[in-house]
Design a protein around this nucleic acid. Structure first.
Lengths: 334, 334
DNA sequence: GGGGAGTGTCGAAGCGCTTCGATGACCGGC
DNA sequence: GCCGGTCATCGAAGCGCTTCGACACTCCCC
């Protein structure tokens, strides 16, 4: 099979109709009688026809490809990124679109280039930061875009993310309900807060607000990702506050170290210290003990981002902000 | 700026030349006088011209896009995958190509579809397994492809990977030189070996061969990824072989647990047990103590894969197998 | 039983680019 | 001073598709 590539003309000839009729069968943009449609569809499959993407893009001014733009900083959050990416591809396919991968190496030029060359119809940006250099460019582009994460000035943009403030608050509420009155948040490395990464700050804000609301004592600390740093942070914390009994960990890479360090400091989980994590499910499940956690719903975020960008492509209005409700999964650590 | 999109016709008019001349300036396929070239290039920049990707693909039968096909199984190896992906994109850009991301969800149909629709010119497959359903399809496609990893029957295919057998052997050699005569390999979870994943097996083979060659005692065990499993495997191992003093860990997810478990079993690293890991650099560096490791050179593999696929696109011959030499980085754990 | 409103289908004109053959201008050799 | 050969450039023919206007029917209402 597949000697040469099959064109719409051959399909038309095979089905005994005009080329335009085949096109209309495929696009559904004009009514076609059931009989003709059948014949055309049969010919399509008999010949193994696939429309030529370039020709289609040229004639229709739509490439049916969206760009997925990777974050500026590699190294953070990595496994989650992969799940986002995979979710975005899967969701895009459901709208009959493919996904072009763009890295930050090329910076804003890459975005400009693929937009200008009509390679893609729209953009999904992952892991947007508060002060993101790609954002101003997006504003002047004709192509629609959706951001995963929130920049400092999100007005007029379409952004999706987990509601991290609610996630932080939910962890506090959970620990408070369990009777813990002195708790701590171990967050991202200090540099991440300084850089102004939105999700880290928002979690902390949610934590702080909930601590006040629930009338418990809580302290939020940044947390480096080496065992030694985690160990010393924790031992200091437990020395200063011996009755600390609840811990919220929002740092995927440090989760394992936190558990090891507690073990080594002679604290049992959950008997002495209850631990809630904000991290992907697989990390929480693989920990020992498995962690009660607020999962980062990568699939859901990816799917939602694609849905929004498709709405915008169709000219439908899209809400500026979409915050996905966090869900707490109960496991052995609380 | 950028009211409407600029076409080659407008560039030609602006520069006072024919459309074909502009095209030849861009492609270099015919000689153009220096003066004309200059004028054309100036016009291109003045107008901000970018060739329309679809039109170009239609006329030239080349899309300048390659497909990057994600592995069938998600969840394994994840951060490394992301680095591969990023390396592939960066390398592809150097050849003026973009990268389309394909997931396994769509299976072989996705590959067939993008090939038939001329969306991509070539394929790079990540994390190929011994018995990979995508391989037979690739063989019948006209588009060139390169595999990262090795299937069971690689004849006639172009494959790239780290030389895992050499990596396993190198770890053994390193430990043997340091005077360790009783060592063990903690590998991937049992299911990974059963599934026939190439890199896991090849590391083990390299380990076993090197153990014999260096006349040391060595045992290779699969290794699950929860702390409890790691702990019990290790404690059993140390009970049965109290003088075991060298450990090779080829399981990114278990690295942290191995160190915690050793700590908890009262063995110091490297004083009591020397540990070598085969894992990405960042994992080795973040461990405590930082691990001597054979790094998985994601960037290099990605770059090499792209280079090979571009050679094939140009009709140049490409070697069937490319094995990248492993490099051992000395750190505190041995 | 003639006019208007749908239906279903066709033909042709592009979309923006590459590429092939043709054409002029210019050169050196006789 | 005319001929063959480069060199630089042009014009036009597609590439495979979508879309627009036109056309031929059928149906129904007055």
């Amino acid at each position: 099979m597949s000697g040469r590539t099959v064109t719409i003309t051959e399909v038309a000839r095979h089905a005994g109709v005009a080329v335009s009729t085949v096109s209309y069968v495929l696009s559904g943009k004009r009514t076609i009688s059931a009989g003709t449609r059948r014949r055309v569809l049969d010919s399509i499959d008999a010949l193994g026809y696939h429309p030529h993407a370039g020709a289609r893009a040229l004639a229709s001014k739509r490439s049916n490809v969206i760009a997925l733009v990777l974050p500026l900083r590699a190294g953070m959050h990595v496994p989650v990124l992969m799940r986002f990416a995979s979710a975005v591809v899967t969701a895009a396919r459901r709208f009959d679109h493919d996904v072009l991968l763009l890295t930050a190496d090329e910076g804003t030029d890459g975005i400009r280039r693929v937009a200008a060359s009509a390679l893609v119809d729209a953009f999904v940006l992952m892991d947007v930061e508060l002060d993101d250099s790609r954002v101003p460019l997006l504003r002047e582009l004709a192509e629609p875009s959706v951001l995963i994460g929130f920049p400092a000035e999100p007005a007029g943009l379409t952004c999706v993310d987990l509601d991290f403030a609610a996630a932080g608050a939910q962890c506090v509420a959970h620990l408070a309900e369990r009777g813990h009155s002195r708790i701590a948040l171990l967050g991202a490395p200090a540099v991440v807060y300084e850089r102004g990464t939105g999700f880290a700050r928002r979690t902390r804000e949610g934590f702080v607000a909930a601590v006040a609301a629930h009338r418990v004592t809580g302290v939020a600390l940044p947390c480096e990702e080496t065992f030694d740093e985690v160990y010393s942070t924790l031992s200091r914390l437990l020395r200063d506050q011996p009755d600390l009994s609840g811990l919220v960990v929002h740092n995927e890479a440090a989760v394992g170290h936190v558990l090891s360090a507690l073990r080594q400091l002679g604290r049992r989980v959950p008997e002495d210290v209850a631990v809630v994590a904000i991290c992907p499910d697989d990390v929480a499940e693989r920990a020992s003990p498995p962690l009660t956690s607020v999962l980062i719903p990568a699939e859901e975020v990816g799917r939602e981002a694609v849905r929004l960008v498709m709405d915008k492509l169709d000219g439908k209005p899209a809400p500026d902000a979409t915050l996905l409700t966090p869900h707490l999964a109960l496991r052995a650590s609380t």
